[in-house]
């Protein structure tokens, strides 16, 4: 039995009185691709943001490669107590955001090499060579010297994925990677994610795109109002929804 890459146990998160997550658990083994679906407000984005501590859960454990993140304080004051541990977690889980969040003052190539050099302390030459290879891989090898604002949304998101991969992460976290894109641009990003899945990259993907979920995920989780309503292999869950809520959700997304 191998240790899971990432384990979330009984995660609770509230903003003020609003409870967003009410005890959610998930486990990602090496090579897993987990899709999180659910209507907006279901807590799926919050969950993935808790995974690399952009949000602090008020309750519950986060284990990265078997090691539990240490917390101090209670309730809304609960915070990670070990900065080095948080850094370790974040440098091993690369996040891709819905709005890409490329650093606007840096060129695409500079975006990709920024964290490897600044955070991981890798030599610049090595980082540049690797960044160029990654940009080639996501199909924008010729855009390295452009600024983010000069690229289309699809190109920006692919650059953001290259930035994530440049960290040589243990797993990738995607927060609605295609939601901000027009359908024709969406496809080019989906192709990149599919290629990563084929290579065996461990990924957790929050998405509203059922096709993406079905094509790349080996495990699908349907969140509803902060709890897991249904989960299992994507084909089973999507084709034979058991709960009325999932049925309703699926028919709404199809329409």
């Amino acid at each position: 039995m191998t240790t899971p890459v990432l384990e979330l146990n009984n995660i609770h998160k509230a903003y003020g009185d609003l409870e967003v997550l009410k005890g959610v658990s998930l486990k990602a083994n090496k090579g897993d691709v987990i899709a999180l679906i659910g209507s907006s407000g279901s807590g799926k984005s919050t969950l993935i943001r808790c995974a690399n501590l952009l949000e602090q859960p008020q309750q519950g454990d986060i284990l990265f490669q078997g090691e539990a993140i240490q917390f101090k304080g209670q309730g809304h004051d609960r915070q990670p107590s070990d900065a080095a541990q948080v850094r370790h977690l974040r440098t091993h889980l690369s996040m891709v955001f819905q709005q890409f969040n490329l650093w606007s003052h840096l060129s695409v190539l500079e975006n990709v090499i920024e964290a490897p050099i600044t955070v991981q302390g890798r030599p610049r030459d090595e980082a540049i060579a690797e960044a160029q290879a990654l940009l080639d891989k996501v199909g924008i090898g010729d855009k390295g010297d452009r600024y983010p604002a000069e690229l289309s949304g699809g190109q920006q998101q692919r650059a953001a994925i290259a930035r994530g991969l440049a960290m040589q992460p243990t797993a990738m976290l995607f927060d609605e990677p295609t939601s901000a894109l027009d359908p024709e641009l969406e496809a080019e990003v989906v192709r990149v994610i599919q290629a990563l899945a084929k290579e065996g990259t461990t990924m957790i993907i929050v998405t509203h795109d059922m096709k993406l979920a079905r094509d790349v995920a080996n495990h699908l989780i349907f969140l509803h109002q902060g709890v897991i309503e249904e989960q299992g292999p994507p084909a089973d869950v999507l084709d034979h929804p058991k709960s009325e809520r999932l049925q309703k959700f699926l028919s709404a997304t199809k329409a």
């Binding site: 974040r90 440098t91 996040m95 955001f97 969040n101 650093w103 606007s104 964290a115 960290m167």
Partner: peptide
């Protein structure tokens, strides 16, 4: 979002 991304990539 720009600063959050920096944090997400491990910057102090």
């Amino acid at each position: 979002a720009q600063l959050e991304t920096a944090r997400a990539y491990g910057m102090n």
